[in-house]
Amino acid sequence: MTLFEIIRISVGDVIEIALVTFILYQLYLLMRGTIAVQISLGLGALFAVQLVVWALDMTVLSTVFSYFNQVFVLALIIIFQPEIRRLLLVLGKNPLVRRLMRTSDQQEMIREIVAAVEALSNQQMGALIAVKQSTGLRNYIETGTPLHAEVSRDLLMAIFYGKNPLHDGAAIIGDRRVEAAGCILPVSTSMKLSPQLGLRHRAAVGLTEQTDAFVVVVSEETSNISISRDGALISNITPDELRTHLTNALAAGEGAGAKRASARAAA
């Protein structure tokens, strides 16, 4: 008979004990040097008294503690609010957690872009939005006004409002933020493009001829939505089609980025 059979501890129990120990140690590190340590000691002493009360079957004190237990969790949240906030910040900075949240953030960005483009189209407001992929767009970002703002429908609507000085240029989105607005993009000189296309459409194609960016165009004259990728232009698409194209483009861009990172690591 082995020691594990005598004590009746399974591998799962060992893993659970290790996890609990690790979590408690991390909580201690967060609370060390703060008043939370003294509060924890006080709560521990109170819990010990409660165990004694239950063991001795003290009716009155047991009733008092039962009322206390009903608000115990809420009291802990209020008392340890700063430590809980610090813990959440630490978790948020963890690379694994950030990777898990990345997809959710990307879907939110796509929703905001599509919502903005649909609203701009409905109001017949021209727009030019470039979404950075693996190729850097710093040269073009520096031609505009830096914003470094979170992507939102309202912000994109405000940028392309007719009386906004930035509305004639392009808004460039990178790393899920609007990096700059009023940016100047290279204009395509391709003879394959229709002569009826305006400057926005030619700029969209021009950028995608030189980079792997994904560009969305809203026509001020017709309110049609167009996209450009890899030097090609797809015109008159719906918001749902835009969502599909943008999702596929970003997914392909992330895959290409991962392959390049693996190649650099192997080299």
Rank of each mutant, 00 (worst) to 15 (best):
I79K: 00
F80Y: 15
Q81K: 15
Q81N: 11
R86A: 10
L88G: 10
L89V: 15
L91R: 06
L96C: 03
R99Q: 14
R99G: 10
R102K: 14
Q107V: 15
E108H: 14
M109P: 04
I110V: 15
R111K: 12
R111E: 15
E112C: 03
I113P: 01
I113S: 02
V114K: 06
A116D: 05
V117K: 00
V117D: 00
V117C: 01
V117S: 00
E118A: 11
S121N: 06
Q123D: 13
Q124W: 05
M125T: 15
G126Y: 01
G126Q: 09
A127R: 04
A127Y: 04
A127T: 11
A127S: 14
A127C: 08
L128S: 05
I129M: 03
V131L: 13
V131Q: 12
K132V: 07
K132H: 08
Q133I: 12
Q133K: 15
S134V: 11
T135P: 06
T135K: 10
L137G: 08
N139T: 14
N139Y: 04
Y140V: 14
Y140I: 12
E142I: 13
T143H: 02
G144C: 04
G144Q: 05
T145M: 11
H148I: 10
E150Q: 13
V151Q: 04
S152G: 08
S152A: 09
D154G: 01
D154R: 12
L155A: 08
L155S: 03
L156A: 03
L156W: 04
M157H: 03
A158G: 07
A158F: 02
A158P: 01
I159D: 00
Y161N: 14
G162K: 14
K163S: 10
K163L: 08
N164P: 07
N164V: 05
H167Q: 09
D168M: 15
D168N: 11
A170W: 01
A170E: 00
A170Q: 05
A171Y: 01
I172S: 05
I173T: 08
G174P: 01
R176P: 00
R176Q: 09
R177E: 15
V178K: 10
E179L: 14
A180K: 07
A181T: 08
G182A: 04
L185V: 09
S188D: 05
S188E: 03
S188N: 07
